[in-house]
Design a protein around this nucleic acid. Structure first.
Length: 797
DNA sequence: ACTAGGCGGGG
DNA sequence: GTGTACGCCTAGT
């Protein structure tokens, strides 16, 4: 009684039932029902790479004798594979229970004649997806029969009876269409200290399902047992396919799990009865049957903004403007909870956080879904994994198709090599500057010169000088033939992307088709662009330092030639970094330059953006620009960090903005003077002066007195518990002696005790001078009394 | 110059 | 779960 079933794979896992592994494909059907698709015949395996002169029969016999009854070795079969492009003799060893692979691989690697054990560390569920060529979020079809399994919280369970085939045209559907999303956010009660789940309860949980109104659950009193129970009930009732949070993998989930344990509750929110969310690969939390996605992982890749707080990211993306929401600092939360009259504001704050989170999900998930479909990693893992892993999992799939053995991960020391060209910028403010970018420069270099660990000529190897590409400067050589692993994979990526881009032209930019294709081409671009960095990443399976070195050498050569071309055409070059050039925007000349670079150097260049005004320091990789669409790009300024006072951060940003928007340094100086004046007249709220630092060990263990340590010691005397990892908020007060003698916990200090001079000299002035220093502004000038009160001394100073 | 170790986001 | 992030920054030598 089997039927043809159409299903979309959401996630894959496995479990061992009655001594046999079964693959669990968490899926949905084309009628919208949620399903588990089981696959029972798949078995774990790995390879033993053999020495040239190994006695195959002898090795096979030794391996067979390792077999244990609990997970017998069911076959040991000689296979001819390829390893780094060359034919290789290997044995494929198949067993039953995935966990036993770890044991067998140790024993097999010790057998004489076995050079290396390979592919023994590929997770079983992914192994299945790779071998059957299945990708998460794509649609498949297979004959399957219904099964009666009680422990899955889905509408129906099927057992698949043949290898699934991809549904033709399935890639045109939006993979997320019809999947339900839950956004959530928790608040905890921790007055004047870092939250500690062993002590501090959860007080509020905000939830939102798709476009429904947010739900705010509130604790009763100071216990949170009933709150967490209600949370579990709602999740089970609403049964979301995707759960999103912001930094939820490292805060909300671990916190909820710990609180549940303390309260003796099971955080029973999964689709597999009897399991709870669990720490998994790449630091993500796995919620069986649901896709748990931490949106912070996406935000990390927004290089345009420095502070990746939920509030900033939501504001930047237009999801929730800062001035239209309740803004609270985390240390105010307990105060707003205790004060019943302020509690509605706190609840509004949670509501705005959860709406922001859902808004970010709508922005980010379409890209995540494409990256999942392209890389082959499930959506909940793909964003938690670094770019290297995302590419690597796709490479493993390509290797499987090419009958190539996958190299092991090896621990290596980091080896340095020469990187890209970074020009010395012309410091100062420049008007009307075009930024030219080479399109996928490194992947194109890799394809053009057939770069890779399987094509490189190793020292001592023979080669035909006519038949190799030689990199400038470093002189590494790569065989022109045959096509290497990376050339094969990358040229297909680049072609795939070109095809998508030309298909996009058929649609209007605001159509769903266009948006889907655009996210897909971005996902392919991310993987392609990761390939160079991947080869230079010491943990990469296909690591090749010389390859990475050769790529940057070709890149330097390319950019230097382009600069020479620009100069020969009379264009002023302001700055250049890796694959970009900043030139004076003379439209006609720039267009001619682009043409020339393509014709003479064979690489594609485009205008990435145009700055109305851009300000360079003499430091490389550090500039601020005002784009033609009126956005401020801050690149490389590090003063805007968590351990500066809010006032210093604010001042620096404001100074940048004034300098760029008005070009008026004088106005920026006046702004800083106004801040200094506000400080002197004690008009700056105390909370803007708090400096937060983390205790890295117990306060008693510090030998020297750092200010935050001194503040922590005062807190201990007052009866507060302090501990490693805790953030201590302190302010610097008036008096004599070292700064650390005058640092006090912020909540015991009154406004008039503040050491104004400290904040002027160590916070405001340095932050402002990071910018204004380049305009010849001195500390003295910032501190002199501005405008009408200018003294004679200022003129002679 | 180097290494070791903390930090980010969250509250 | 056939597993355990990463890259930047600073403090300390």
């Amino acid at each position: 009684m089997s039927d043809k079933i159409r299903f979309q794979i959401l996630d894959a896992s496995y479990e061992v039932v009655e001594g046999e592994p079964r693959i669990v494909l968490w899926s949905r059907l084309d009628d919208g029902r949620k399903a588990v698709m089981l696959y029972k015949g798949f078995r774990p395996y790995f390879y033993a790479l053999l020495d040239e002169n190994a006695n195959v029969n002898e090795v096979v016999g030794k391996i067979r004798r390792l077999s244990k009854p609990k997970s017998p070795i069911i076959s040991v079969e000689p296979v001819t594979k390829r390893y780094f492009g060359r034919p290789a003799k290997a044995l494929k060893i198949v067993t039953v229970i995935p966990e036993y692979v770890r044991e067998y691989r140790e024993e097999v690697s010790k057998i004489e004649g076995v050079k290396e054990v390979l592919e023994a560390d590929i997770r079983f569920a992914l192994r299945f997806l790779i071998d059957k060529n299945l990708y998460p979020l794509r649609w498949y079809e297979a004959r399957a029969s219904e099964r009666n399994v009680k422990w899955y919280r889905v509408d129906v369970v099927y057992e698949i009876e043949e290898d699934p085939k991809e549904v033709i045209g399935g890639e045109r559907a939006d993979p997320l269409d019809g999947l339900s999303i839950m956004a959530f956010d928790i608040e905890v009660y921790s007055p004047q200290r870092s939250p500690d789940p062993s002590r501090d309860p959860v007080i509020l949980i905000g939830l939102q399902f798709n476009d429904e109104d947010p739900i705010i659950l509130e604790a009763e009193g100071k216990g949170d047992a009933s709150l967490i129970k209600r949370f579990v009930d709602i999740v089970l009732e609403k049964d979301p396919d995707i759960i999103v949070g912001y930094n939820s993998n490292r805060f909300d989930w671990p916190y909820l799990l710990e609180r549940s344990k303390i309260n003796g509750i099971k955080l029973d929110v999964t689709r597999r009865i009897g399991t709870v969310p669990q720490q998994s690969v790449y630091g993500h939390i796995s919620v069986p049957g649901r896709l748990n996605v931490d949106l912070y992982d996406f935000a990390e890749e927004l290089h345009e903004i420095k502070m990746k707080t939920l509030e900033e990211v939501a504001d930047y993306l237009g999801v929730m403007p800062k001035d239209k929401r309740v803004n609270l600092e985390w240390w105010q939360i307990s105060e707003y909870w205790d004060d019943i009259s302020k509690r509605p504001i706190l609840k509004k704050y949670t509501e705005h956080d959860v709406i922001s989170t859902m808004g970010l999900a709508k922005k980010f998930l379409p890209f995540g879904a494409q990256l999942s479909q392209v890389s082959g990693l499930p959506l909940d893992q793909v964003m938690a994994a670094s770019v290297g892993f995302r590419l690597e999992w796709r490479l493993i799939r390509e290797a499987f198709k090419l009958n190539e053995l996958v190299p092991n991960r090896v621990e290596r020391r980091e080896e340095r090599y020469t990187g890209a060209v970074v020009l010395q910028p012309l410091k100062g403010v420049h008007e009307n500057i075009a930024v030219l970018d080479f399109a996928s420069m490194y992947p194109n270099i890799m394809v053009k010169y057939n770069v890779g660990p399987d094509t490189i000529v190793r020292p001592g190897e023979d080669y035909d000088p006519q038949n190799v590409y030689e990199a400038p400067e470093v002189r590494h050589k790569f065989r022109k033939e045959p096509d290497g692993f990376f050339r094969r994979v990358l040229s297909r990526f680049l072609e795939w992307r070109r095809n998508i881009k030309s298909e996009m032209k058929k649609y209007s930019p605001d159509s769903p088709e266009y948006r889907l294709l655009n996210e897909r081409q971005k996902a392919i671009k991310v993987l392609a662009n990761a390939s160079y960095g991947y080869m230079g990443w010491s943990a990469a399976r296909w690591y090749c330092r010389e390859c990475a070195e050769a790529v940057t050498a070709w890149g330097r050569n390319l950019i230097k030639s382009s600069i020479a071309l620009a100069k020969s055409m009379g264009l002023k070059v302001i700055y250049g970094d890796t694959d970009s050039l900043f030139v004076k925007y003379e439209k006609d000349v720039v267009e001619k330059l682009i043409e020339k670079i393509e014709k003479e150097l064979g690489f594609e260049v485009k205008i990435d953006k145009v700055y109305k005004r851009v300000f360079f320091t003499e430091a490389k990789k550090r500039y601020v620009g005002l784009t033609v669409d009126d956005k401020i790009d801050v690149v490389g300024f590090e003063a805007v960090r968590g351990d500066w006072s809010e006032l210093a951060k604010e001042t620096q940003l404001k100074v940048m903005e004034i300098v760029l928007r008005t070009g008026n340094v004088e106005e920026a100086i006046n702004y800083v003077r106004k801040v200094i004046n506000d400080l002197k007249e004690r008009r700056v709220p105390l909370e803007k002066l708090i400096i937060w630092k983390t205790l890295t060990k117990r306060a008693e263990e510090y030998e020297t007195d750092a200010p935050h340590v001194a503040a922590a010691r005062i807190m201990m005397k007052l009866g507060y518990r302090t501990y490693p990892g805790m953030k201590v908020g302190f302010v610097v007060t008036k008096g004599s002696g070292k700064v650390s003698d005058r640092a006090k916990p912020y909540f015991i200090v009154k406004q008039n005790e503040i050491d104004v001079d400290y904040y002027i000299n160590k916070q405001i002035v340095p932050a402002a001078l990071r910018i204004l220093g380049y305009f010849g502004v001195t500390e003295k000038r910032l501190k002199s009394v501005g405008g009408k009160q200018k003294s004679l001394l200022d003129f002679f100073g």
